[in-house]
Amino acid sequence: MAVPQRSGGSRFTLAILLLISVTLISLDARGYEPLANLRKAATAVIEPFRNIAGTVFDPIADAWESLSEGDALEKENALLREQLSELLEYRVTTEGAVEELAALRTQLDLENLGGQETIVAEITGRSVSNFDPYIIEIGKGTQSGIREGMAVVSVGGLIGRIEDPGLRSSRVRLITDPNLNIGVLDVGTKEIGILSGGGVGQPLKVSDGIPVSAQIEIGSIMVTSGSERSPYPGGFAVGTILEIVVDEINLEKELLIAPTGQLENLEFVTVILYQPPSSDLGRD
């Protein structure tokens, strides 16, 4: 078969496009502000169209969800009923624990969460990528006082942090992301470690900072440490310890943590309008 001669024009066009792409990647990696603004502008421009499309497509998406996740919903329903009955029993026996927790908090000198200003935001979407499932979108942004790195909580505890807030919408990076690190503190022993996600549906991990000699117990609650460089205020429940694995080489304990915050089937979340005293936010 005769191979047709290709003009140099198409190669030149491709070379230019690749050069532009690589330049964009490089600039974005350096945190080039105009690109971040371009993203925010693009989000703001397309938002009205997305809202209109949302009203049309939401029923389709809901129908699809009920069709594809019908079995899962039934199982979840049964599980929730079981948990409710357990909780009703548990409530009777743990009324005193509330006072105990308050005493512990005072003892640990944790900040009073009730004093933090919060804002409730509706979840407007999930990740729009197949490769990054650790994102949800909320319908509030900088206009409502939301800033980069602010903590996001749901019923039960911390679920993520704000990333790339736009004017009227923001992304939330979930704590299940293996690349998100959070400083946590064990309420029982006051040991501080670094918690990271374990992936979708997997327990969280504390694999750094807990010495092998620490008397940590399964079932103990981990809260945000509220250390000086942490973007999160201290004392937010993050999870309960499921399993303790001893790392003989590093002489540390690795903890598997079940998140206390509800991460599935969310409709609303609460953003803590807290900014740490230092503007230099680390990932902890």
Binding site: L17, S21, V22, L24, D28, A42, T43, F131
Partner: peptide, 23 residues
């Protein structure tokens, strides 16, 4: 390139990555 760039505007991945690939 254009379709990738449009997607990049709404992804958390670096801007230009989808544009490069799709082009």
């Amino acid at each position: 390139f254009l379709s990738g760039f449009l997607v990049d505007l709404y992804l958390a991945s670096p801007m230009g990555l989808s544009a490069l690939t799709y082009a």
